[in-house]
């Protein structure tokens, strides 16, 4: 038998939530029709008719984990998650969707404090960033409503992703420092990238053909 898998069945991990809708449009433009009620349906594994593809729906932070362990061959995930999770995967393409930015925010009258505390859903990114800035800060991991932290005195600053900035404004916070731009990426498992090189390249090329049009 030949070395490569002739069938080359490909499993794609898709993130539920923020970038799901946009990713779905993207897939459609790339010629991959997925049933419309994907997110409403409770099914977590969705085969694509007449193809060798199947989708698994996952929490965004879990997408790189599935891909690293090889239970999904490729995945669609935000750069924010990739930076935070530090998984050993190939980052193949910038899909240029799901634009937002990672930033430091606080109250408009923020002043450096003696014991700086930063609340965030992204403790690794925050720690790394402040270390690079030569600041020693206490990072507090929160799982949601991060904007609340400066308002009630849990932390003096937050690190979070911002797209329109509306949530920040509504809570009277301002952007203090810009950390990096975030977009959605196509990632691949180390073994699949080689064992299923044709199928992985095929999907990457399909995606690539859509990117410039946007």
């Amino acid at each position: 038998m030949s070395g490569s898998d002739r069938m080359q069945k490909l499993t794609i991990a898709m993130p539920k939530g923020r970038i799901f809708e946009e990713s779905l449009v993207f897939l459609k433009e790339a010629g991959l029709t997925v049933t419309a009620d994907l997110q409403e349906s409770r099914k977590l594994i969705i085969p694509v008719a007449n193809s060798h593809l199947q989708f698994i729906l996952a929490k965004p932070t879990d997408v790189p984990t599935y891909v690293e362990y090889g239970v999904a061959d490729v995945g669609v995930v935000g750069k924010d998650v990739l930076l935070e999770e530090e998984r050993d995967v190939y980052e193949l393409l910038d899909l240029k969707i799901g634009y937002c930015r990672m930033m430091v925010a606080g109250l408009p009258d923020w002043q450096p404090t003696e014991t700086p505390r930063v609340a965030t859903k992204y403790p690794r990114i925050a720690s790394r960033y402040f270390r690079e800035q030569g600041q020693q800060v206490e990072v507090i991991k929160l799982n949601g409503s991060v904007e609340l932290a400066p308002l009630i005195g849990l932390a003096d600053r937050i690190v979070d992703i911002v797209s329109t900035g509306q949530t920040l404004r509504e809570n009277g916070l301002v952007e203090l420092e810009h950390i990096c731009e975030i977009t959605t990426r196509l990632i691949a498992n180390r073994a699949s990238y080689r064992m299923k090189s044709e199928a992985v390249d095929e999907i990457a090329d399909k995606f690539l053909s859509v990117i410039p049009r946007r």
Partner: peptide, 11 residues
């Protein structure tokens, strides 16, 4: 060089 097997996520 690095070797991979079908259905195994790591080399």
């Amino acid at each position: 060089f690095e070797g991979y097997a079908a259905n195994l996520g790591s080399p």
